[in-house]
């Protein structure tokens, strides 16, 4: 099960590598690489947030075991996304990166989301989970901030058709609503 999901999550990246090697990305690989890595980072993030509700509904404990892997994949795709930006758009110059971060809010927001993933990745091991105890759960609530930032990032970069960003935002809103509902229900009891 875990090996299967691992392979599935790797597919978009494998497809990118294959297409890049066979010139299948067309005359402007930057565009498709940025698009595909960014989209998959967000999709996997939403999938990560789906694990808790899915376990509730299905009762399969195995679903929760996939959460860490999915989360790490989010970081993987977000990192390739950021690296592609540095490579294609600013040519690895620090000055240009600082200028982009200072002047373009959607890039600031995207970069902040990536930064907030770092502590989550570092504390993703079982050992860290044990050591941090209750604080681990508190820390990992940062994932909601990351999701909000990621949604802003994708909505902000849309030029004329906001259909796709709206779908992601709607899905995130549903996942969030489920948690809010559960939380308020627990408060009442």
């Amino acid at each position: 099960m875990r090996a299967g999901v691992f392979a599935l999550c790797l597919l978009p990246f494998a497809w990118l590598v294959y297409s890049a090697a066979t010139a299948g990305l067309g005359p402007d690989p930057a565009e498709s690489i940025m698009h595909i890595t960014g989209e998959w980072a967000l999709r996997l993030l939403l999938l990560t947030l789906l694990t808790s509700p899915l376990r509730r509904w299905s009762g399969w404990p195995v679903v929760l075991k996939l959460r860490r892997m999915l989360g790490l994949y989010v970081f993987f795709y977000a990192s390739v996304h950021l690296m592609s930006f540095c490579h294609f758009y600013i040519g690895w110059t620090v000055g240009a990166l600082i200028e982009e971060l200072a002047e373009r809010p959607y890039i600031t927001v995207g970069f902040a989301a990536w930064l907030l993933l770092l502590p989550l990745v570092v504390t993703s091991t079982r050992g860290m989970q044990r050591r941090l105890r209750r604080n681990w759960r508190r820390l990992h609530r940062l994932v909601y901030v990351v999701a909000v930032l990621a949604c802003c990032h994708i909505l902000w970069q849309a030029r004329s058709d906001i259909g796709e960003p709206l779908i992601y935002i709607l899905l995130f809103a549903i996942l969030l609503a489920w948690r809010v509902k559960r939380f308020t229900a627990r408060q009442k009891n």
Partner: peptide, 23 residues
């Protein structure tokens, strides 16, 4: 004069490739 969301100082001359973005 930059576009508010990105810089206009340089451009990718197409075809651009993975190892030579041709900026």
């Amino acid at each position: 004069v930059d576009h508010p969301r990105w810089s206009q100082k340089s451009e990718r001359r197409l075809p651009s490739t993975l190892f030579n973005p041709n900026r």
